[in-house]
Design a protein around this nucleic acid. Structure first.
Lengths: 345, 345
DNA sequence: GGATAATCTTGACACGTTTCAGCCCGACGA
DNA sequence: TCGTCGGGCTGAAACGTGTCAAGATTATCC
């Protein structure tokens, strides 16, 4: 069946015997039109199966009912949980989310931002690939609301929702140091991700506090924060002479940690007896891993909810909106993967 | 800084000293405009930072450059992998994906379909919550392309991309029967999901083939296909008298299986020695589970890619498009969770 | 009953594009 | 020299909606 001609507000108007203005009013300000008229219009809408054209509305209004969400990796449960939070908040407001996956690639991120700008989205919630947010500032200057997600804003005039990554790094490292570890590996990357650097610096800070040399922590950079990269990093760690080899590994996220765990297990290295392991994010699968994973928990869903709410607030009342940099606190969850006390040395 | 007035094609035109029609041509059919003019226009575009308004284009053209993807659960890695496939195919074509999460809730699904219709998306890729696809047929009659995802289309005039779920069920069950199991539990739900029913019926069929009574398979329905529901199902299974208790569990997806595994482990039931376990989907985390999970693998990413491609094909050449029902074959991956031969009886 | 107020409704314009009939003008052939 | 051709470009008409000043109708009050 060939699609018939689309039914527009005009058809509804003539069917109901009113003007188009009235139909529009029924749609947008139902209270100002008389009940009898309203019912007649609603009946016509039903009868004709009229569905308003959001493109036209958007054209007239200036901005639409969609918002963009740009994350680093859809396949990472951390981000899907964040997305769920965003969806909760926006769904209630009747907004659509355009979900974009930058895959940690600046070029892909840039392409998606172009696309979102063409769509005239209300706003963009984004975990940027790198710090060059000049592009984002330009976006904002053009009227697109921008909220940084899982990243602290350096500018006071840009909202952001983040978790204190340095603190998270500190918590993890303190835990390992207290368990007696003195040769520790940090697995994370790419280094351009601020989250990775912050977690590393937090770890270094915990070392300082404990009066330990910085060499205690050895850095293994990965090309991406994925399971495969984790496996690879683990085999690099195991490639070292036994005497110099790390006795504990702190990973910048749980996917890496799961990868490390897989490779260690494959090579018959026991966790936590031979090597202890701490991840980051506390995704649901961390608890179900071969060896239940200690991890730094983040309020994933709330992160998304809060970011979306901040955006909606600004959209609804731009005058009184105060830009905010919300920061949540992470929390260490200790499980089996790091439960093994070791005599220092 | 307050956003300045948006720059439109008209501003570009006057800046470059040409008419709006020419600017539009530069944008859409660059070849028909003289090189010198074209360069002048491009320069103006750059200078003014012009970004075309897709809403206006869409209004004029009838349909836009977006498509909707409606899945049952964003948090399920199966669907994020499918989404990745979709993204691959559409990103190349410069299209945007509106990602919707029905959460298995018909009402939510319906709301999202409304929204997508208002957006005048080119098409919808959907894993429907139930079989009542009357709603989807209506959508198609209005000119929205529809492709069923991970679900076989019953109508010859609707494209679909699916995996043979009955076969998947058969593979899993044959494997368990061959290992000697004679009391097996099927965990899955909600029953309204066709995937769940098909996998169950496949399992029953394998039983028939082996000449075993249908009572061999005991059904445990879950309210949702999630980890939490899996834990709950496991405790129901363990609630049975030991002599009648299943010696193997086949789960309709891996999240359920992981939940079952967690609860069994918590209650000190060994997998696979006491109870064998087989999941479905073979998500990446299945291999990394406490006990590596046997699972029925599906070509997740290809599923999404193919569906998107089918849609794009129809969009580009509606005349010659032949509707297709693509069906992939699943594959059983045996890991530790089901590696334990049992003497029947 | 008439003036005024209150409540609804109308109709035209604007939003930023694409499209298309038609105009201009230089080149070419006769 | 004139006519024709065709590549380049123009300008206006749509697309479907929201908005708003102004008009129409009804209610209110003396």
């Amino acid at each position: 069946m060939v699609p018939g001609p689309a039914v527009s507000i005009r058809d509804v108007a003539s069917q109901a015997g009113v003007s188009v203005g009235t139909v529009s009013n029924v749609l947008n300000r139902p209270d100002i039109v008389a009940a009898s008229t309203r019912n007649r219009v609603l009946a016509a809408i039903n009868e004709l199966g009229f569905v308003p054209n959001d493109a036209a509305r958007q054209l007239r209004r200036g901005r639409g009912r969609t918002l963009g969400l740009v994350v680093l990796d859809v396949a990472n449960p951390f981000f899907t949980d964040v997305a769920k939070g965003v969806e909760d908040a926006t769904g209630a407001a009747g907004m659509a989310v355009i979900f974009c996956n930058s895959d940690g690639d600046p070029a892909k991120e840039s392409r998606y931002l172009d696309l979102l700008e063409e769509q005239r989205v209300q706003g963009v919630l984004i975990t940027p690939v790198d710090d060059a947010n000049e592009r984002l500032v330009r976006l904002r200057d053009r009227g697109v609301l921008v909220v940084l997600l899982d990243r602290r804003s350096t500018r006071p005039d840009v909202c952001s929702v983040a978790v204190d990554d340095r603190l998270g790094g500190e918590l993890a490292m303190r835990h390992l140091v207290e368990a007696g570890h003195r040769r520790i590996a940090f697995v994370g990357g790419p280094w351009r991700l601020e989250q990775v650097r912050d977690r590393y610096h937090g770890a270094v800070h915990a070392l300082d506090e404990a009066g330990l040399a910085e060499e205690t922590l050895r850095r293994f950079e990965t090309p991406s924060p994925t399971v495969a990269a984790g496996r690879d990093a683990a085999s690099r760690i195991l490639g070292q002479p036994r005497s110099a080899r790390a006795t504990a590994v702190f990973c910048a996220n749980d996917l890496l940690a799961l990868g490390v765990l897989q490779e260690l297990t494959r090579q018959q290295v026991r966790v936590p007896e031979d090597i202890a392991l701490v991840g980051y994010d506390d995704i649901d699968f961390a608890a179900a891993a071969a060896v239940p994973l200690s991890s730094v928990r983040q309020p994933r869903q709330r992160l998304g909810q809060t970011a979306a709410q901040l955006m909606l607030d600004e959209a609804n009342d731009p005058e009184n909106h105060r830009h905010q940099q919300v920061i949540f606190e992470p929390e260490l969850v200790v499980r089996e993967s790091s439960q093994y006390a070791r005599t220092p040395g």
